[in-house]
Amino acid sequence: TDVTFHVNGRNLHLKGADEELLRRIEELIRRGADIEELEKAVKEWEK
């Protein structure tokens, strides 16, 4: 799945995201995470 999140005026584009990653990103956004936290979560998922 390709999806782009718009967070605090910045874009986080995910290519090939699975349901697990999407749920994790949505949860972080609900908690008020900043873009750096979201990018870190994506990097951890990519490993």
Rank of each mutant, 00 (worst) to 15 (best):
K40M: 14
E44L: 11
I29A: 03
E20Y: 11
R30S: 13
G32I: 02
K15H: 12
V42T: 03
N8D: 10
K40F: 13
R31D: 13
E27V: 07
H13K: 06
E26H: 11
V3Q: 04
R23H: 11
E44W: 07
D18S: 15
N8M: 04
R31P: 00
D2W: 05
A33Y: 12
E39P: 00
R10W: 07
K47E: 11
K43R: 11
W45C: 05
K43M: 11
R24L: 12
E37D: 12
K15Q: 08
G32V: 03
A41M: 09
R31F: 11
T4V: 14
G9P: 00
K15T: 08
E20N: 14
K43I: 13
I29R: 01
I29V: 06
I29Q: 02
R10E: 15
H6P: 15
R23G: 08
N11H: 15
A17G: 03
R30E: 09
K40C: 12
E19K: 12
G16T: 06
E36P: 12
L22N: 01
N8A: 04
E27M: 10
L12H: 00
L28T: 02
V42R: 02
N11C: 15
E39Q: 09
L21K: 02
E44H: 10
E39F: 08
A17M: 03
E46W: 06
R30A: 13
E26S: 09
F5S: 13
T4G: 08
K43H: 13
F5V: 15
E19M: 11
A41R: 07
H13A: 05
W45G: 05
N11Q: 14
E19V: 10
L28D: 03
K43T: 09
H6V: 15
E26K: 13
K47R: 12
T1G: 10
D2S: 03
W45E: 03
N11R: 06
I25K: 00
E46P: 13
A41V: 14
E26C: 13
V7N: 02
L28W: 04
D2P: 01
V42L: 07
I35N: 02
V42A: 07
E44C: 11
D2M: 03
E39V: 12
E36N: 07
I35M: 11
E19Y: 08
R31N: 13
R30G: 11
T4E: 15
F5Q: 13
V7T: 03
E20M: 12
N11G: 04
L22M: 06
I29S: 01
L21A: 03
